[in-house]
Amino acid sequence: MKKMINKLSAKMLTVCITSSLATQSVWAAGIPPVTAPTGGNGGGLIKTFQNYMGDGILLIGLMLSSWALIRVVSNGITTYGEISDGKATYKDLGTTAVVGVVLASATFWMVTQATEIF
């Protein structure tokens, strides 16, 4: 009985794999093509790889900028919490907000300027 179940399951697996391979082109028909990097797709494999690397470096820079913005907001929330404890004043919160906005803006500006390099 066990042999018969194993044979049946092996045959079912073979049928499933064969049918999936036969209809793969139909399933993949709706998938959009891979987009080219921003630097272009021409010039050979190495140039295309370099363009993808430039996009990757830009993405890392934007993620670091987002992290900096999150840290600025977190510091502002912490300062606001310290106001209720009496450890800080609204002047400290204003200073934190102004410095944080300037730092976050400068970070995003530098990342957008770096896009011209790549």
Rank of each mutant, 00 (worst) to 15 (best):
K11C: 15
L45Y: 04
G43E: 07
L45T: 02
L45I: 00
A29D: 00
T18E: 11
L45E: 01
C16N: 09
V15Q: 13
K47T: 09
G30D: 11
V15N: 03
Q24I: 15
A36E: 15
K47W: 00
S19I: 08
G54S: 08
T48E: 11
T35N: 08
G42S: 05
S9M: 15
L13C: 10
C16L: 13
A29L: 04
L13Y: 10
A36R: 13
T48S: 12
M12A: 13
G43I: 07
K47S: 07
T48C: 10
S19T: 09
T23P: 00
A22K: 05
N51S: 03
L13V: 01
P32F: 14
S25W: 08
S25V: 05
A22W: 05
L13T: 09
A22D: 00
G44W: 02
T35V: 03
S20Y: 09
P32I: 06
Q24N: 14
G43Q: 06
I5H: 05
L45C: 03
G40Y: 12
L13N: 09
L13I: 03
T18V: 14
I31V: 14
A28H: 07
A36G: 07
G43C: 08
T48Q: 08
I17W: 07
K11Y: 15
T14L: 13
T38R: 12
T14I: 15
S20M: 13
T14A: 13
L8I: 14
I46S: 04
I31N: 01
A28R: 14
K7C: 01
I17F: 15
I17C: 10
Y52G: 06
G43W: 05
K7W: 00
P33D: 04
D55T: 02
T14S: 11
A22C: 01
G42E: 11
S19Y: 11
N6P: 00
P32V: 06
V26N: 09
S20C: 12
S25L: 09
A22Y: 04
S9Q: 14
A28N: 14
Y52K: 10
G30T: 10
G44V: 02
T14F: 12
A10D: 11
L8Y: 11
I46Q: 05
L13H: 06
A29C: 01
T48K: 04
S19G: 08
A29S: 09
Y52A: 02
S20E: 06
A28C: 01
Q24Y: 15
T23K: 04
N41I: 07
T14G: 08
L21I: 14
G44Q: 05
S19M: 12
I5C: 04
P32C: 10
C16G: 06
M12E: 10
I5G: 00
F49V: 03
T23Q: 05
W27T: 09
Q24C: 09
M12S: 05
N41R: 12
N51M: 03
P37R: 01
T38M: 14
G30S: 07
A28Q: 12
M12P: 00
L45R: 04
F49P: 01
L8F: 11
T18G: 13
I46H: 02
S20R: 10
D55I: 01
G40S: 06
N41K: 14
A28M: 11
G39C: 06
G43T: 03
W27A: 04
A10F: 07
T35Y: 11
G40C: 04
A10P: 00
T35G: 13
T38W: 15
K47D: 06
I46G: 03
I17N: 10
G40I: 08
